[in-house]
Design a protein around this nucleic acid. Structure first.
Lengths: 344, 344
DNA sequence: TTGTATGCGTTATCAA
DNA sequence: TTGATAACGCATACAA
């Protein structure tokens, strides 16, 4: 077993001091040609690599960023994560992921673990429970310690920090307008409980679009499902009792499920019921018919968040001057497919 | 800004030595009641937390594990990751993820970065390119350094280490038998290039099942698609030219795409063409018809891998005795749905 | 009961 | 041109 070699080993072996070795390996001008050559050759031979941990301790920089997301088996978060990972890697950072499982406690525990020196900054999306409790003390503590934080997608106004979001309200607005342009009059909304701020935003856009187009808002056309829509009864009843010719769903699973129900109740998609979902994931692409959906550009969001974070981390000498925070808005785009276009 | 406090701060503030503080906070019996109380109170007040990095350096244990996977926007890997993350967290470990993007070079770079002290062990699935090149020197180096490694799913015989796999060959065998029991005679296989060892295994199972049931193997009934099946021409031709009444696909995307093609060529699923896929992901559940598929139990695989890894890490005093490696096999199970069951 | 010294691996300052 | 020393934050063997 070839154990990792350290500066000390090299120094001892070559009968020089540790600091000489250190300098030689950094190609310092201070060290003589011969000594440098000798040391460098030896280091290469034994494949010397500096120990990251020691360097972290010395520099007070880990080159790690912490990512905390509610769920990992989830197309959108996964996409964002990919963007973060790519960008971070390109700038020499590694990514430590913790999954909160939509739990407040886990979110808090994970943050505290990582905040004790393991990472240089956080990127996170709030768990559902955190948003429900409206308790952000763990975020406050972290920012007060001077650890940079970037929130994405599931954000809160309670915390002053960089943020990356999509224009949910407007995306929903445009989706509904799109349906109206297709001649739809009775447009239903399928959403989650309102404490998820993205859902709330989307509902606002939905209402505003109706209003701007002189369609009166009908509460009966809003179906609010629990986040993990497991039992079908609510949606079954909705399909039985309500009349509508179009559907806006706040995620693609709801949308695909609803298209299934439409089939069951003999509504053709898109002829009798057009359908638009949020999250342009794998389901949208491969469902039958394929689903028109709002692409949230997760990868771009991730890259953007990572860039904001790393920029802040690396400019952190300015701990005195007034902190300036930014909220970047990623423009969602509508990908039109079979569920609204009859010629597909 | 409340900067992180250290032992040294406390010591200075309370006019005691650093080691006294250290012991007091560990509730050591050596320290007097009063001093202990004083120190503990102070530490609590200022929310003292030991610095992870310093502890890592001291203990030569990071409590981090490195996970390297080919892709993160991928249901199966994501599921495995969840299992790893859950288990690791429960045992006090954090997870650093690197994505190889199916690239050999990235895999190597990522491993080397993490191997320099950032992690206590690796869990990984080989990238496609690595399997294609058949070059495992980066894995060898890591294991030779005494860093524990667990491979899962995409493994290789070239490396001696712990492994977790599913019984791919048998799962495919059983899937085909299932189709035969349903009365299917001409069963096609849709697979990827063979350098992906899982695909190869599945193809073996397919052939063995045919043989055991006296169905002659017909090369024309095997469709081999590039990994990222973007152009449709090959599969279109296949559907036009070949006759078959059942399909085994090595992943769910292929399966769903094929069901789409079946529709296009007026084959009813499952009546005219039954279909089974691998990876019981979101597509299988929500496709129309829903897809019968082989559940690889990714989460269990992840937990198992994490357990093997952490057990090895924590038993690592035994660096002298002969290393014993294990390969655990997770039993895949067939989830029957609409694509093989006509009554659904 | 408390404190001193040393080490983990590295870098940086200063002295030789 | 090289080396001794201190420091990063913590833990511990050993002294006092």
């Amino acid at each position: 077993m070839k154990r990792k070699i350290t500066l000390k080993h090299i120094a001892r072996e070559l009968d020089v001091s540790i600091s000489t070795v250190s300098k030689a390996l950094k190609n310092s001008e201070e060290i003589g040609r011969d000594t440098k050559d000798k040391i460098q050759a030896f280091a290469k031979l034994y494949n010397y690599r500096p120990n990251n941990i020691a360097i972290s301790l010395k520099n007070k920089r880990t080159k790690n960023i912490g990512v905390i997301i509610p769920d990992i088996v989830h197309h959108f978060f996964t996409t964002v994560f990919r963007g973060i990972e790519h960008y971070a890697n390109a700038r020499g950072y590694n990514v430590i992921v913790c999954v909160s499982d939509e739990s407040f406690d886990k979110e808090v525990i994970n943050m505290e673990m990582l905040a004790n020196g393991s990472i240089d900054g956080f990127i996170m999306a709030l768990s559902a429970e955190t948003q429900l409790k409206n308790d952000y003390n763990h975020l406050k503590e972290v920012t007060e310690q001077g650890i940079p934080l970037v929130l994405f997608d599931r954000v809160t106004d309670e915390i002053q920090c960089d943020k990356v979001i999509i224009n949910d309200e407007e995306a929903a607005y445009r989706a509904v307008e799109n349906l109206i342009e297709l001649g739809r009059k009775k447009i239903a909304l399928v959403t989650t409980e309102n404490y998820l701020n993205v859902s709330a935003k989307r509902a606002e856009g939905y209402r505003r679009a109706l209003k701007d187009n002189n369609i009166s808002f009908d509460e009966n056309l809003v179906l609010q499902l629990p986040y993990q829509m497991e039992e079908e009864s609510m949606s079954e009843a909705f399909f039985k009792n309500q009349k509508f010719d179009a559907l806006l769903c706040v995620n693609e699973i709801f949308a695909v499920k609803c298209m299934g129900l439409a089939r069951k109740y003999n509504k053709r998609v898109p002829q009798d019921m057009a359908c638009i979902g949020f999250t342009d994931g794998i389901l949208s692409k491969y469902s039958t018919p394929s689903l028109t959906s709002v692409d949230q550009h997760g990868e771009l969001m991730g890259e953007t968040a990572a860039q904001m974070l790393i920029d802040k981390i690396e400019s952190d000498h300015g701990e005195n001057d007034e902190e300036q925070f930014e909220t970047k808005i990623i423009s969602a785009t509508l990908i039109e497919r079979g569920s609204t276009l009859s010629n597909s």
